[in-house]
Design a protein around this nucleic acid. Structure first.
Lengths: 247, 247
DNA sequence: CCGAAGAGTGCACTGAGTGCCATGCGGGAC
DNA sequence: GTCCCGCATGGCACTCAGTGCACTCTTCGG
């Protein structure tokens, strides 16, 4: 780490500096150096040699910490994915699986919201650089597969369980990303969680077992259940019962 | 093109061999050579030099036809994406946008179904090779963005138009891929379109404007259950509007 | 016959990523 | 203390994808 860029990323490491296992000062130094260069000359105009030269470490060490040049742009997703997996495993018999995956998605939002300036900078980078966009897709894909795997387990007994699991996981990810990106586009202004809540409520209303517990404080007076044409009667009854809070 | 592998890919070019513009024998030769080598030694164990040596052309020519080594694995997606874009543009004022994007997704299925053996071989490749999986994600992402862009235009007047567009596009792609992959996993046995129809029907039933004109007889009635616990009428109407996704 | 355009080729170069080995450093065993 | 072991790092050489450039050869129009 050299100078100015360091301040931006202060809270990015998994541990608070100096506490816990206190693993890698070097890893953070590489991320800081990389972002400094990416922001001033662009991603593709920056070589790995440039980064390690600025960080003052050997080239070989870069690839020790990051399997590829792209990985340095997403230094915390590996941990977040582990968190999500653990969160889902902890809810293996949650009563409302769809709500559970929505909450899991909120973990990702929380990670972004922890470092708004860093997240916004990274967002601008990934928007411009096709290679990073592709890499981000593979990251998002792993989140989606984690959600889908959880839902597949929960829906194992349903008729089209895997289909529903895949579709709902994709919808949750899409809703989350829609809200996240609009928050990022606004430079991290405002409350990100509100937009995500709204987006996820839409998904829950489309698939949800508990259609829409609307605000958060007290149950609204009005409850509307819209059942699609052609839905089997038992499903409609189930919706009504769930909505009214009966067993 | 050298020998045995050619037969597998006979119908893959855009034109029927010899008719139409009859553009590129070389392009097809490269694809055939590449797949022959990929299948016998694996993707990563095959260098571009190996491919061009087998095809009997210069190395530089490979990169004239395919911007990257990965592109040779998906030689027809560019055309299919163009077809989809055109199909959506032609339905700019279709009465049922969700049905339209479902039909657009079926175009992709049709492309896969045109060459079952090729599709199955490619599927096995992309499953094993992480790099190809990542590349496929970026391809799928472009389809999804095309669908979402269409829906965004159609939903411009709705309140959460872009959110709904993104979520529905993601759901359609997920449903399509779920059915497609299960078909590919079964070595292309059976009728792919039936599984996709079923998967897309699920999405339409969750989001659909004309949810599911079920068997063939007459459309079911919409069931709307309103439970009001002392709410003013205007509030009920508001909820109904919101639930139905009207502006 | 000539000149322009385009398809194909060869060559040299950059830069990402890997394997291998040397070096330096701490800590524990003797 | 010394020796040894493990570990983090650095250096080097190599492979291979991808690019820019210049050259050839063919084709086609005048």
């Amino acid at each position: 780490m050299r100078d100015s860029a360091g301040a931006t990323f202060q809270a990015m490491s998994s541990e608070k500096a100096g506490a816990g296992t206190g693993k890698p000062p070097m890893r953070d130094a590489l991320v800081a150096a990389a972002f400094q260069l990416f922001l001033e000359r662009g991603y593709e105009q920056t070589t790995v040699d440039d980064i390690v030269a600025l960080a003052g470490v050997g080239r070989r060490s870069f690839f020790r910490y990051f399997p590829s040049k792209e990985d340095v742009v997403f230094p915390d997703h590996e941990r977040c994915l582990a968190d999500m997996t653990a969160f889902l495993a902890a809810g293996a018999d949650d009563a409302e699986p769809v709500r559970r995956v929505c909450d899991a998605a909120r973990l990702v939002l929380r990670m972004y919201a922890e470092n708004p300036t860093f997240s916004v900078q990274r967002y601008r980078l990934t928007r411009k650089v096709p290679g990073l966009r592709a890499y981000e897709l593979s990251v998002v894909w792993r989140y989606e597969r984690a959600l889908a795997a959880y839902l597949r387990r929960r829906f194992a007994a349903r008729r089209d369980g895997t289909l529903q699991a895949d579709v709902i996981a994709a919808a949750v990810v899409a809703a989350h990303n829609n809200a996240l990106r609009s928050w990022l586009r606004s430079d991290g202004q405002g409350e990100a969680s509100a937009a995500v809540d709204h987006a996820l409520a839409y998904v829950q209303s489309a698939f949800g077992e508990a259609p829409v517990p609307p605000a958060g404080e007290r149950p609204e007076d009005v409850v509307v259940v819209v059942s699609r044409r052609g839905a089997p009667l038992w499903r409609v009854v189930q919706e009504i019962e769930a909505t009214l809070g009966r067993s």
